[in-house]
Design a protein around this nucleic acid. Structure first.
Lengths: 341, 341
DNA sequence: ATGAAAGCGCTAACAT
DNA sequence: ATGTTAGCGCTTTCAT
């Protein structure tokens, strides 16, 4: 049978209330009693019963603050679905979600969102927004105040967050390289649309791609790396120019960037369907591109799983004190073709 | 605030005990009281609180019986991991797992396993074994006795099971076709190793593959379909013979069958790495084949997710009475290349 | 046939 | 500083 606080209390010769105080770090316990209880907890391998906790939390559920981009960012739709699924499963487990939608281009806004959550008394935070020094500082403060933080989809590095749930970006780049190598003849010219080097995701994917190519002795020729291609116009202009400069181009890897712009540039140059395209994620325009046989492969990062797992990991942390299995929890990276839809 | 049995009881002018009896279909409630309670339950949109239920079930947890192949079948390792993960999350939710490992070639043994679980009083069953008339009959009996059954990984069709959690086999075949089409030149000769037509998985995958090819106007020539290739010897002999008969063969799709045998046959014929191979799943020999660049692509069905979701769906069914979202719950079908490992 | 009440493990308000 | 106790929602035993 499982160990309960009652048994701990008996063995320690104190009341259940005291054990509860010790376990939840509340003030008002003599240090020696505290230590005795803790050692017994350790010795008996006590793990709290979640049903019991959940029931006790019914009146005032623990609040999980979630910082993420606003609802019109479609990429986050699937992530939100994953969060909803986990939330539905945890509906009676004593937690309540509080969303903070922030524009992820503004560092202060992001840090401010975390600050507000902390001040409003949340007991756990899920964060998917900008990686910035102000944000890092706020996350560290939250953790110091005993509020666990889990980042998802895009990480905040070098801070005290418990873990990150998201994609292995480097692997994503390597996979793209592997695909290109398989579908193009040796020596073919390709271009890489890096996107914006300020973003870790763009950089690391490109690195994974170029490293893999190098490791294979460069079976393909990376004839152009297009940077600063974030918005439609940038991307269109750059891709259009590249297509004109490099008439023999046979493939494009979009580490990210505006896919619609790339497709439009291809179409305008009469190259749609002729140049092999590998990109990331599964937005509506990418599904269309796959169906139209303009995009050959897209590499997906299981966003629903990212939402689902991050909430579960945080719940475990908050209610069981269970540390995540790893600091970086990667969701499966898989390859989609039109037939996958 | 949530509706509780207490509120139902008040509104119906009965005691909580009576409401409980009605909700759990226990005998000893006058029909008119019963109806009144039920209509109020309906009207107030009552959903049981899982923490409350879980706590009440602590003393004698509900037993989930799991019928699956024995532990030495490595393919099920990942599925077992998924089940374990779900079980860990549900550890305090009032259930206990009871495994029944059966040889999935023997219909009576499989049916018998289900029978024993039912007789031993389990309250839910997870089944992943043979699809057979005896099994179907036993599953129907279980369901008639109020014990929900969920099949996973391989379905049992035309029976009263609540749902199936597993792969979309037809899509898996189409994806294989899509890959072959992309990596081979038009008109190339390929072979399909069907495996054993007795198994639905083998048949349906092959059908998905050939249907897709047909729909595209047969860009590749299916020069040979190898049946009855279950064990090493069969597969080796057939593939070896095919390689000798068709010297121009450029690709092989293994809907299933013994991959090691296929690789050995390729090696002995000096064709390893020259003929493009697409297969299924991620067994150790397939990982090796990918790394050695003998296998080009493998199509994976997310077995861990199958284990995880099937247990969660069954739990919802048992404790919330929540019907699954669909009768067929498909886990993601994704494509792996060596870089995916 | 139905009501009353104890108990599942934990928390928190109240006592001491 | 520590003990006591009343719930949290549901099941189940014991009365009636």
């Amino acid at each position: 049978m499982k160990v309960t606080i009652r048994q701990i209390a008996e063995k320690a010769g104190v009341s259940r209330g005291t054990v509860d105080r010790v376990l939840n770090g509340r003030y008002g316990v003599k240090p020696d009693v505290r230590d005795r209880v803790l050692s017994i907890v350790e010795e008996m391998n006590y793990v709290p019963n979640l049903a019991g906790k959940a029931l006790a939390y019914q009146k005032k559920p623990a609040v999980v603050g979630i910082v993420m981009p606003p609802e019109h960012i479609r990429f986050f739709d699937q992530i939100r679905e994953g969060i909803s699924l986990a939330a539905a499963e945890l509906k009676d487990m004593g937690l309540r979600l509080e969303f903070q939608y922030v524009d992820s281009t503004q560092p202060e806004k992001c840090a401010q969102a975390v600050r507000e959550l902390v001040n409003s008394g949340v007991q756990g935070i899920l964060y998917a927004s900008l990686d910035d020094s102000q944000v890092r500082a706020m996350i560290d403060e939250a953790v110091d105040r005993g509020i666990p933080v889990v980042t998802f989809n895009s990480d905040v590095e070098d801070c005290k967050r418990a873990c990150f749930v998201g994609q292995d970006l480097y692997k994503s780049g390597s996979i793209a390289a592997g695909l290109m190598k398989r579908i193009l003849p040796r020596g073919a010219q390709i271009a890489v649309v890096l996107g914006n080097p300020k973003f870790q995701a763009h950089r690391v994917r490109t690195l994974g791609f170029t490293d893999a190519m190098k490791a294979w002795g460069n079976p393909l020729e990376i004839a152009s790396v297009i940077e600063i291609a974030d918005r439609y116009e940038d991307t269109f202009t750059h891709v259009d120019e590249t297509l004109k400069t490099l008439p023999d181009l046979e493939g494009i890897y979009l580490a990210t960037g505006d896919i619609a712009a790339c497709i439009d540039a291809l179409r305008l140059n009469g190259k749609a369907g002729q140049i092999r395209i590998v990109c990331n994620d599964l937005l509506p325009e990418i599904e269309q591109g796959l169906k139209d046989n303009i995009i050959d492969f897209t590499i997906v990062q299981n966003p629903e799983q990212q939402g689902y797992r991050s909430l579960r990991v945080l719940y475990d942390l908050m209610f069981s004190g269970k540390q995540p299995d790893a600091e970086l929890i990667y969701t499966a990276t898989s390859i989609y073709i039109p037939e996958s839809l």
